[in-house]
Design a protein around this nucleic acid. Structure first.
Lengths: 241, 241
DNA sequence: AAATCTTACTTGTATATACAACCTACAAAA
DNA sequence: TTTTGTAGGTTGTATATACAAGTAAGATTT
């Protein structure tokens, strides 16, 4: 262990006090002035340490009031979900889309509920097959709220993915995910060219823009050809095992 | 829009040059000295702007060389992975553990590779079954590096989960995930009390502590009883659909 | 030709100082 | 009682300055 810079030592000092339970969640920690006296450094150095811990979500500061421990980090670890077209292109392969369905439907009771609209209201429905070098990799079964994307069906999905189109038209700011393992229907299975009995990885994704549900998508992936992965570094808090 | 602080203006200035294509990915941007002359601020202010953009992954700095544009951010979205015992307890149910296997093995070639150790080195191996109100929910097949957790096998896993034990003994700071859908082996299937042909959600988790691999775990979940979920708010960047 | 030193530039850190902005509590005035 | 002012703490920002540490390229020596 080489010599660490002062501001880093201060960060570790603070984290240590938090982890040891000495400074519990939501408690106020010493002010910058107290810390600099205790540690014998300049205020700017203390400030940098505290500012960085605040940016990392460890602390919470209120101007004029003080600095507080920012409650327990959710004991969790983050998994990165990529969008498939970028993923394929970054592997140097070509991405293509086959349009299987494109229609306007009337919302069922369940669908109305997930969109927070009324039963019978119109919804756009598309089913697309995404391929990597002509090998099916994802079946995208998507519902879109016409109120937020009225021209959705007119988009040429062989050119622009629904994701790209929606990102461009609606600045999405909230998203919900559910990942599950399922046995695909025979139709889904045949589209994805999967062997019989082979499971698929289903990613349910619901996206909001300014409080309204824009789109709900079921993304089916062949279990043997696709997996979600992530490598996550953390320099601030402990992660799970 | 109220008056923004200088360092924030500089950040926006830099981001604007990147977004406009003027400063493409991997290109070198002006040095701190050039920027402070151009913008009429002190070096510390430029330094703060550039340092924060570096922490945010927008720039990349090399001491003695310069500052470079750090390529496009992966257009991704984050999925939160909870640890199972907390999850169960938060639902108000009781969590119990059944110990199926507890042994010391010698690392195979593959295992040695994932741990960055030598073939034949010792590894701890445990297989535990986690239950929610006596219903099996997760089969945990875990390998642990004795060098980082020598007393692992002596832990009473009916009292303390391996996760809790390892979190307490090793401050983990890095983790890798792979989520896939699989047909379970007949053994796994029977432990989890799953119907025939039912797929399971497999979460592969590898965890590091100060550069060393501490543990590799395969977490099997019945596809019909378990799913990974997350609701994610973003106030900074657009998310995928 | 090869190895070494030097120089000039870069980023990284640390300090002392200053003032602005904000919050709370208490005192003073209406 | 209600409002207003004020004092003393807090964090937020900005500057000037200094030196350490790393890189690259050229000059110098071997």
């Amino acid at each position: 262990m080489t010599d660490q810079p002062r501001y880093k030592q201060i960060k570790d000092h603070i984290i240590h006090h938090i982890r040891s339970g000495e400074w519990p969640a939501d408690s106020q920690i010493p002010s910058e002035n107290e810390l600099l006296k205790e540690l014998g450094v300049s205020r700017m150095t203390v400030n940098r340490a505290v500012r960085e811990l605040t940016a990392e979500g460890v602390l919470r500061r209120v101007q004029g009031l003080g600095t507080f421990v920012a409650g327990p980090q959710p004991a969790s670890v983050l998994l990165e979900l990529r969008n498939i077209a970028d993923d394929i292109r970054e592997r140097g392969n070509t991405h293509s889309t086959e349009i299987i369905m494109k229609e306007t439907i009337q919302a069922s009771k369940d669908q109305a509920q997930t969109f927070y609209i009324s039963e019978g209201d119109e919804l756009f429905h598309t089913i697309l097959l995404h391929k990597e070098n002509d090998l099916p990799l994802q079946l995208e079964d998507r519902l879109v709220n016409p109120k937020t994307a009225p021209d959705y069906l007119e988009c040429d999905f062989t050119e622009t993915t629904p994701n790209a189109y929606l990102v461009a038209t609606n600045p999405a700011d909230e998203v919900e995910h559910l990942v599950e393992a399922q046995l695909p229907s025979t139709e889904t299975s045949s589209h994805l060219q999967m062997k019989n009995g082979e499971p698929c990885l289903l990613l349910n994704r619901r996206t909001w823009s300014s409080g309204q549900v824009v789109s709900v998508a079921k993304l089916y992936h062949p279990g043997n050809r696709y997996s979600l992965g992530a490598h996550f570094h953390s320099r601030k808090e402990a992660v799970d095992f």
